[in-house]
Design a protein around this nucleic acid. Sequence first.
DNA 1: TTACGTTATGGAAGCGCTTACATTCATATT
DNA 2: AATATGAATGTAAGCGCTTCCATAACGTAA
Lengths: 342, 342
Amino acid sequence: MKSAAKITILDVANASGVSFGTVSRVINNDIHVKPETRQRVLDAMRRLGFVANRQAQSLAGGKTNLIGLLVPDLGTGYIGEIIRGIDAELGLMGLDLITYTTHRTASKEANYVANLARGMVDGLLLVLPRHPADYIETLTQRGFPFVLIDHQGTGENCPAVGATNWQGAYTATEYLIKLGHQRIGFITGWMDLGCAQDRLKGYRSALRTYHIPEAPDLVYEGTFSQPDGYAGASALLDLPNPPTAIFASNDVMAMGVMDAVRNRGLRIPDDISVVGFDNIAQSAMVYPPLTTVQQPLEQMGRVATQMLLGILKDPEKEAGRIELPTELIVRGSTAPPKDRAG
Amino acid sequence: MKSAAKITILDVANASGVSFGTVSRVINNDIHVKPETRQRVLDAMRRLGFVANRQAQSLAGGKTNLIGLLVPDLGTGYIGEIIRGIDAELGLMGLDLITYTTHRTASKEANYVANLARGMVDGLLLVLPRHPADYIETLTQRGFPFVLIDHQGTGENCPAVGATNWQGAYTATEYLIKLGHQRIGFITGWMDLGCAQDRLKGYRSALRTYHIPEAPDLVYEGTFSQPDGYAGASALLDLPNPPTAIFASNDVMAMGVMDAVRNRGLRIPDDISVVGFDNIAQSAMVYPPLTTVQQPLEQMGRVATQMLLGILKDPEKEAGRIELPTELIVRGSTAPPKDRAG
DNA sequence: TTACGTTATGGAAGCGCTTACATTCATATT
DNA sequence: AATATGAATGTAAGCGCTTCCATAACGTAA
């Protein structure tokens, strides 16, 4: 018996008394194989411990069975959830994932995309891409399959999955207003990202709906990171007329807000209500548990993958933007404002 | 001009007036090419936008230029840091990373390893493997290159990089003792992991060194997750004679501890000191900033990758276990115990 | 029985590259 | 001048597979 690493379809063919062509057919689930022959081949494969060589399959077959994933970072629960969804779908189809981390570097991003699209992978999943405009046109022209995750796309009907950011922010703000809050601070994310813009717009729309005047000093511009939450909350609480609630554009910043609030000896939610966005796992685990807008991150990963597989199967298929619903998760970090509650 | 995706070395050879063999030599930095010829080929490659087909290279050359990475999860800062280090080293060598998430499922782990080791990748990086014993022997026998990250290995001298967990826990405990703490609670991690065991041992050794009797009820068994920290701290604080300091086996649990402490209206560090382990980015951002034992995670990723590349280059090279130093980072979550300070 | 459509199987060609070996050519050596 | 030496380049043989086309085997209707 040869070394396990070196069993080829020829060995299997010999062992099962058929030609290598038939073995290939069995591997690829071709219909034109007599069931008993198939079984014989399958047995031989198992006996010999045969595993098809991916490189050879790719070279001969013209596809790699690899999906490229571009993410800004890998250390966040946000990305982790999305990948969980991608993993699940891909696993079902026997595809593998090759991951690139851009660390928010635009040049790296464009570079990776260029190389990956040249035969390294069959399709591309782009999470929160920074400058997709730079290469989306090229990809589209070449007909290279890709799907954007949590990005608006570039105006045209380019395949993308996102969440109802506007709606989520609107609902959360409305909830705070209905609790009785009139001064609601808002901390934005990276304002060059569509999702961050939409959340801000949702917040503003809700204020407008309830005839609450917009105070520009109640909006603090952040970048989705925890220190921004801390700094933003500190700035807001320093205002002559501070807010009674703070809505952060993601949970990580909301954690920073909570720290800042506590640091001043204020209590959550008694003195200040705090709301986040994302519903990362940690949000339910902090004290008090964070009221937040849930993004269906894992589902976004799943749906994006399904879209990509769809395009892979039928390149003509027109796939536009899909928006998955967000949901307000009410937990312990929100309450009516003090002056009213008391 | 052909489509960019279809330029082969033959096209480059024609365009530059040499044989495809010479082009191949240029690609592989073979010495036997006249500098001016090389330049001519390089120019042609740039002009044509040539990118070598990885599949064909792999098939012909017998290596994939792909490194497999097995991680339990992708959503933690812990893993993110390690991957950052891996990425950096791999990028330097033009290797790509193919990632598998096991979600702590032992069967998946063994499965992935089996498949990957059969030609899918050139080498394997295993982060915090759950049941390496199941397959390490196989890998070793076959001479398949791999490196364990943050795992003790399996007794033999198997390639692994870790941190000085014992030392880190010892130092942190000693620091608490020197602050004046006599009752120090400890929350463990997954006790089937060597690193968790070592941290517990380090804690115990420090107590012994300073002749502080070990109280079994001061040790709470956790699993590295935030709710364990919360539950552990709650249990410890419910003790008739509660500790004045709590040492959690990782930062995530320490966050849980902080929540639990605050939830009871106690103040950190005034009433209770809290210490973590890992020094994830978040630790510096919470309030009060967490005193913790830094693990050089990124460096662990780097070193592991270097080890693997070393083995890849020279399979005979005996690579044993490397332990990178941990360091106590003192921040605001620790202080002398109340009864002493006051 | 013959002819014909199916279905199952065999085999050649080729995917784009590396590599060992063959060949060429220039230069050094005697 | 004749030859050895070594550097630069060309070429054939695969790597392990898919896929197309040819062929064999098997029914089935006439």
